[in-house]
Lab assay of single mutants.
Amino acid sequence: KFNKERVIAIGEIMRLPNLNSLQVVAFINSLRDDPSQSANLLAEAKKLNDAQAP
């Protein structure tokens, strides 16, 4: 279950337009470290993406 959620979360994070490459890598590394947190990490990535919108 967590592996599928992690793959989906990674794909979504990679498509967030307002994150820089270091932020994307940090979120992906966090997902690798704890796949059970996929939903929480994706939500945090989306919040950061929205906050950094031009």
Rank of each mutant, 00 (worst) to 15 (best):
Q37N: 09
A9Q: 03
A43V: 08
L42V: 14
Q52A: 07
S38F: 14
I8C: 12
L41M: 10
R32S: 14
L19I: 04
V7G: 07
N40D: 12
N18L: 02
S30D: 05
Q23C: 03
N40E: 11
A43D: 12
N3A: 06
E44T: 08
D50F: 11
N20I: 05
A43C: 06
L22D: 10
Q23R: 01
K4N: 04
R32A: 06
A9G: 03
N40W: 13
N29E: 10
A51C: 06
D34V: 05
A53E: 08
P17Y: 05
I13D: 00
L19P: 00
D34Q: 08
S36P: 02
I10L: 08
V24D: 00
L48T: 02
D34Y: 09
N20A: 07
A39N: 13
I10T: 05
I13E: 01
L48I: 08
A9W: 08
L16F: 05
L41E: 02
L19C: 01
L42S: 03
V7N: 08
P35C: 15
Q23V: 02
P17V: 10
A43M: 10
A53D: 11
A39M: 14
D50T: 10
S38Y: 15
A39D: 06
K1G: 14
A51R: 11
S38E: 03
L16D: 00
M14K: 09
I10H: 03
F27M: 07
L48D: 02
G11T: 09
S36H: 13
L41C: 06
A43G: 06
E12N: 08
L16N: 01
Q37H: 08
K1A: 14
I10Y: 04
P35L: 09
P35R: 04
A43K: 10
S36W: 06
R15E: 05
V25F: 13
S30F: 12
V7S: 06
M14Y: 07
P17F: 05
I13R: 00
S30I: 14
V24K: 14
S38A: 09
D50K: 09
V24E: 01
L16M: 12
V25G: 09
I13P: 00
K1S: 15
Q23F: 02
M14T: 07
L31A: 04
R15S: 12
Q37W: 06
P17Q: 07
Q37K: 13
S21Y: 12
R15P: 01
L41D: 01
E12Y: 13
K4G: 09
P54D: 05
N29S: 14
S30R: 14
Q23S: 02
Q37T: 05
S36M: 08
G11W: 14
F27C: 01
L48W: 05
N20G: 06
V24I: 13
S21I: 13
S36G: 07
A26I: 12
L42D: 00
S21K: 14
N29C: 10
A53M: 09
A9F: 15
L31M: 07
N49C: 01
V24L: 08
P35Q: 08
D50N: 12
L42T: 05
S21H: 08
A39R: 10
Q52H: 04
V24A: 05
M14F: 05
R6G: 15
N18R: 02
K47S: 10
L42Y: 03
S36Q: 07
L48G: 00
L42W: 04
Q52V: 04
L19Q: 00
I28A: 03
K4C: 14
Q37D: 08
A26Y: 10
N49W: 01
A45I: 02
I13N: 00
E5N: 07
M14S: 06
V24P: 00
I8H: 12
R6Y: 15
A51F: 11
L16T: 00
K4M: 04
V25H: 13
Q52I: 04
R32Y: 14
N18Q: 02
A39K: 15
N40Q: 13
A39F: 13
P35W: 14
I28Y: 03
A26V: 12
S36V: 06
Q52Y: 05
A9L: 11
P35K: 04
I10G: 02
P35H: 05
V25K: 10
L48Q: 05
V24Y: 04
I8V: 09
I8N: 06
K46Q: 04
M14P: 01
S38Q: 07
K4L: 05
D33L: 14
E44A: 12
L48M: 08
I28Q: 03
K4Q: 15
D34S: 11
D33Y: 10
N18P: 00
M14E: 04
G11H: 07
S30N: 09
I10Q: 11
N18A: 04
F2R: 04
E5H: 05
P35Y: 10
